[in-house]
Design a protein around this nucleic acid. Structure first.
Lengths: 239, 239
DNA sequence: CGTGCCCTTGAGTACAATCAACGTTCGTGG
DNA sequence: CCACGAACGTTGATTGTACTCAAGGGCACG
C-alpha cells in the first residue's frame, strides 16, 4: 500500500526492517478522495500529514484576483505535507487533481519517530529538502526559461519522478492534468500552453493528449528543457 | 556571535539552555568572506553547513546561456545550507553578496544533535521547511505577480525577516544589492527593475539607493505587493 | 441531445525584453 | 590632484514573447 513510498525512500538510502515497521505503523488509516477537491487549506491547524498512495496532488496558492500558482505536483509515494509536521499549518493549499488514495499519518506518530529513529528522521528530513529542491528548480523555470523549455522541463521532471516508482510505461506516462493546470504550474496562460504544446508536438518532442504523455525522444526533450536531474537526488547515499 | 540565529529560533519556539549549548557547541569556527564570492558550488560533496553571522548571501542556479536565477536571499542568523546536512551536496550555488562572517557547523555535530536532541532536530527541520515556504512564495511572485508587486513583495519579505533579527532601523534597512541582483531574484531584466523601482519611488512606496531601503509607508507597500507574512511563520509555537 | 468543460485557433495588445547610449560614482594610478 | 576606467544606474526606442479577447469545435455526461 505504501510500496511506492518505500521505493522512493530506498532509492535514496537504506531503510531497515525496523524502520519499515515504524513507517507502516505510522499510518492510521487510508482514505479515498474525489478529483479536484482541496483537502488542506492554508492556515488550518494540522495534526496529521498526508501520504499519497495513488493519484496526483498539487500544492497551490491563490492570488486575490483569482489567479493561482501551483508550486509543486505530487505523485504516488510522495508525502503531500510532511512539512506540516513541523510547520503545524501550511502556507498553501493542497488539492487532488485526480481520484486519490491517501494514507493518513498522525503527527504524534511522526514525533515518536523523531524520538526513536534518528536515521529515519534524517531520511524524512531529506524528503522535505527534496521538495525544496523541486521548488528551486521551478523558480528557475518560472523566472528564466522560455515557455517551450519551461513546459518541456516539467514533463522531464515528471518522467523522472514517476519512473522512480514504476509509473512510466511505454514511451511515457499517464498524467490526468488539463492544459489550464499545466498553465497554473508554469506561470502561463492556458492559451499559450496550448500553442506551446502544439509546438512541442510539431517538433516531435512530446505528445500530451487525454491524460497521456508520450515522449518519443526523451534525450531531445531534455536537451530543449536543459533538464539536469541532479536536483532530484536520485542516487542512493547514507543520510 | 550566533545571537541572531538564536533570536530567529526563539521567535518560533522555546530553546532550552541545554539546546543552546548544543547549538553553540556545533560551531567549529567562524570565517570571513569577501563580497561576490561563490562559497558553495552545486554538486560538491559537503561535510559542513554554513550559518550566516553577518552579511547577505544568496542561493542561485546558473543557466547555460549565462543567465542566473537567485532562488533565495539569506540574512544574519540564517543557515545558508542546513539542507546540505541531509542532501550531502547541493543543487545550487551559494554566493556572498556582501562581506560576510560565517560560522561553520560540521555535519557530524548536526548528526549528534539528531541523535541527542529530538526537539532541536524538529526545530531545525522546521527552519528548512521555512526555506521551502519562501521558495513557494517566490514561485508565486515569479509565476504570477506583475513586476511592481513582485519587487514590492521582495522588499516586504526582507523587511519582515530583517526585523526579526533587529536589522530594521529608521524607516527601512540596509541592503547591499545591485539592481541587477534584484533582477536575478525576481526574473526580470536590470533595465526593467530600474524602471519599476522608479515607479515605486514615484508612487512614494519605496526608495532604494546606495544600499539602503527606505519604506515610508509599509502598509501601502504591502498592499501593492499583496504581502501576507503568514508564509514566514513568525508566531511562536511548539514544534 | 443539450450543456459544460476542455481544447484550439485567430486577431490584436501589452508588459517586459532587447538594443543602445549616456550619466554617475568610485577606486586607482599616473 | 586629476585622468581614467569599471561598475552601476538611467533613459529612450524598438522588438518580441506571452496575454487578452473572442469564437468555434470535440467530447463526455446527464
Amino acid at each position: 500500500m505504501i510500496d511506492t513510498h518505500l521505493m522512493k525512500l530506498r532509492a535514496r538510502d537504506r531503510v531497515s526492517e525496523e524502520e519499515e515497521r515504524a513507517i507502516r505503523g505510522a499510518v492510521s488509516e487510508v482514505r479515498e478522495f474525489a478529483a479536484d477537491k482541496t483537502i488542506i487549506r492554508a492556515g488550518e491547524d494540522l495534526t496529521v500529514s498526508l501520504l499519497l498512495v495513488d493519484g496526483i496532488l498539487c500544492r497551490y496558492k491563490d492570488l486575490s484576483d483569482g489567479q493561482r500558482q501551483i508550486t509543486e505536483l505530487h505523485v504516488s509515494g510522495d508525502f503531500a505535507d510532511l512539512h506540516s509536521f513541523t510547520l503545524k499549518r501550511l502556507d498553501h493549499n493542497v488539492m487532488t487533481m485526480s481520484r486519490c488514495r491517501i494514507a493518513i499519518v498522525p503527527h504524534e506518530r511522526l514525533k515518536a519517530i523523531t524520538e526513536q529513529h534518528p536515521h529515519l528522521t534524517r531520511l524524512y528530513w531529506f524528503t522535505t529538502n527534496l521538495d525544496a529542491a523541486i521548488h528551486r528548480e521551478w523558480e528557475v523555470s518560472l523566472g528564466r526559461r522560455p515557455s517551450l523549455a519551461r513546459i518541456a522541463h516539467l514533463f522531464c521532471e515528471l518522467q523522472a519522478r514517476l519512473g522512480l516508482v514504476g509509473l512510466v510505461n511505454g514511451d511515457g506516462y499517464d498524467l490526468p492534468l488539463t492544459q489550464t493546470e499545466i498553465a497554473e504550474c508554469m506561470g502561463l496562460t492556458p492559451v499559450h500552453v496550448n500553442r506551446t504544446l502544439r509546438e512541442l508536438r510539431e517538433r516531435g518532442l512530446l505528445e500530451f493528449r487525454s491524460g497521456r504523455v508520450s515522449i518519443p525522444d526523451l534525450a531531445a526533450l531534455a536537451r530543449v528543457a536543459e533538464f539536469d536531474p541532479a536536483y532530484l537526488y536520485l542516487e542512493p547515499r547514507a543520510r
